[in-house]
Design a protein around this nucleic acid. Structure first.
Lengths: 208, 208
DNA sequence: GTCTATATCGGGATAGAC
DNA sequence: GTCTATCCCGATATAGAC
């Protein structure tokens, strides 16, 4: 049934996501996670051995959420220009609805890279081959003098950074949440336009 | 003299920067800061009342470092295209040499926005007027159909994100530190080229 | 101004009853 | 599986000698 109350283990994981995403590893409190899940602290240790392994589950979930759609889009058989449009539209929306995810992942990788070697190695092949896919399409479809790695990182930057910089933009420009959401909605088309315009520029003018 | 041993208060602040930048507020330990500064824990409280106010000093320093050069460049009387080039070149270099700064500032704003209201208000005017400067130059020099806020955020995204994503890029592509540094060095010219190419594209093709 | 010693508290983890 | 009670360490902060 749709409305089964979530089983305890799952409720704990959901609560842990919320708290870890908002506070990071060191800032998160097992007590707060327990309260959020509506259970006792001891239960967290029953299901997840300790804070570290609970965190690990949360990170794995976040990281794969960020990767899975990226792969799906870039491994489709659309032309590169369509992929760019699709990717930006999907990612800006998804991330602004889950605005803690990317910063959480970045911080985790800074603070505990060793922790995730195994996980990353399991996933390593795909981003590399995303890059290879882009390389081929740049050559075959566009025939432009642009480094595919720079292009790839540019696409990610333009999609992700404005969302993780949300509190900064909000504070500096005094934007309300609604303002910001409208801004992100605009970006779903201004960013692909910006990128495709740039690509056009490479066609006309070779790199110096 | 150049080689005066730094006075205690300053040594503490420097140590605090190092530790807070690397570990964030919750992850930082007063003991580690004391060790790093070569003094006793109690001295931290003598100079800075508590952890919170020490952190505040560190944040203020980081935040202003990120703003001051931005203002300097955007308030000069160069043409916009030159400003873009100057800004990217300066910022990519500066940030990759101080790679903890931007993430530290972003995290601080997420975790404790109320903490910095006053500080932000003191600085608020400038980024707004940076935006106004860009708006005028887009109109008078380029006469393009591009929203200056989007352009501004794009410039920041392309300059800052690749640096804060360093551990992710490094893990995913297996890049060494030297590899990455070379990549950032390339970006000092590929990014301005990308942006200027995009601007050229707006001239040719009106927004749909 | 700088140190040692200590108070105090909070948080992760475990024992054990139900 | 879930709870209460408790252990125990580590961390901020302060007292007070030098």
């Amino acid at each position: 049934m749709v409305n089964d109350p979530a089983p305890t283990e799952e409720r704990i994981l959901e609560a842990a996501k919320k708290v870890f995403h908002a506070r990071g590893y060191a800032g998160a409190r097992m007590q707060e996670i327990a309260d959020e899940a509506g259970v006792n602290k001891a239960l967290l240790h029953y299901y997840y051995r300790n804070k570290e392994s609970l965190f690990h589950a949360v990170f794995e979930d976040a990281f794969s959420k960020l990767l899975v759609k990226m792969k799906e889009i870039f491994f489709s058989d659309r032309p590169l220009t369509e992929k760019v449009e699709q990717f930006v539209q999907y990612y800006v929306t998804f991330i602004s609805n889950n605005s803690y995810l990317p910063l959480f992942v970045l911080n985790s990788l800074y603070e505990r890279p060793e922790q995730f070697r195994a996980l990353l190695e399991r996933n390593t092949l795909s981003p590399l081959s995303i890059l290879e896919t882009i390389r081929q399409q740049v050559k075959s479809e566009l025939n432009l003098d642009i480094d595919p790695l720079h292009l790839y990182i540019n696409i990610l930057s333009l999609s992700i950074f404005p969302v993780i910089a949300k509190p900064m933009i909000q504070n500096i420009f005094g934007y309300s949440d609604e303002h910001l959401d409208a801004f992100y909605a605009e970006r779903r088309h201004t960013v692909p336009q910006f990128i495709l315009n740039a690509l056009k520029g490479y066609g006309i003018h070779q790199s110096k």
